[in-house]
């Protein structure tokens, strides 16, 4: 498993690290660096059906199921947005659908003082991305309910 998000990079680790910094520069540098640790998404996956609409920057998401857990490849052409996507991924990647749905994203962003980036007025696509992740999790739950287990398959709708 080469993707550290949701494995070694957890929400607790993000909260701890961000809580340790006391100026915005360190915080944003960390967020941008976190974005750089995202496994790269192949250019050919930057397609319209994977794109989250309504953002100033491009944001792409590719969900899949690996060993019964939901995994997400995400990318953006903006550094800060990539970093914020990484912050989200720490909480939702490689998790079961029910864990994802149970996770309180607002409380998490509140704790790390980045809640403004989740506000509906922000055009950065983060909120839409979080909604998409939850939607994927909900659909996976429905499918699992129907079949009793998650199959290993790509989940592009």
């Amino acid at each position: 498993m080469s993707n550290p998000f949701g494995n070694t990079i957890t929400p607790e680790a993000v909260i701890d690290t961000l809580g340790f910094f006391d100026d915005w520069e360190e915080r944003y540098r960390y967020i941008i660096d976190l974005g750089k640790e995202l496994p790269s998404m192949p250019e050919e996956l930057h397609t319209e059906d994977r794109e989250i609409k309504g953002c100033q920057s491009h944001v792409w998401i590719e969900p899949s199921v690996v060993e019964g857990r939901l995994c997400f490849a995400v990318d953006s052409d903006a550094h800060v947005v990539r970093g914020l996507l990484a912050v989200v991924l720490a909480a939702v990647n490689n998790k079961s659908a029910s864990d994802i749905l149970a996770f309180d994203m607002e409380a998490y962003f509140q704790k790390i003082d980045l809640l403004k980036h989740l506000s509906p007025t922000r055009g950065n696509g983060l909120r839409a991305m979080v909604e998409r992740v939850r939607q994927v999790a909900q659909e996976a739950m429905h499918r699992a309910g129907a079949r009793q287990s998650l199959a290993e398959e790509p989940l592009v709708s």
Binding site: W24, Y28, Q56, S57, D77, A78, H79, V80, V81, G123, N124
Partner: peptide, 21 residues
């Protein structure tokens, strides 16, 4: 090498209000 939205967010952190996009 920078997306306008990156610049906008980093300027906002420094009290500078611009529009991007």
């Amino acid at each position: 090498g920078a997306h306008p939205s990156d610049i906008g967010m980093l300027l906002d952190q420094q009290g500078v209000a611009v529009r991007t996009g």
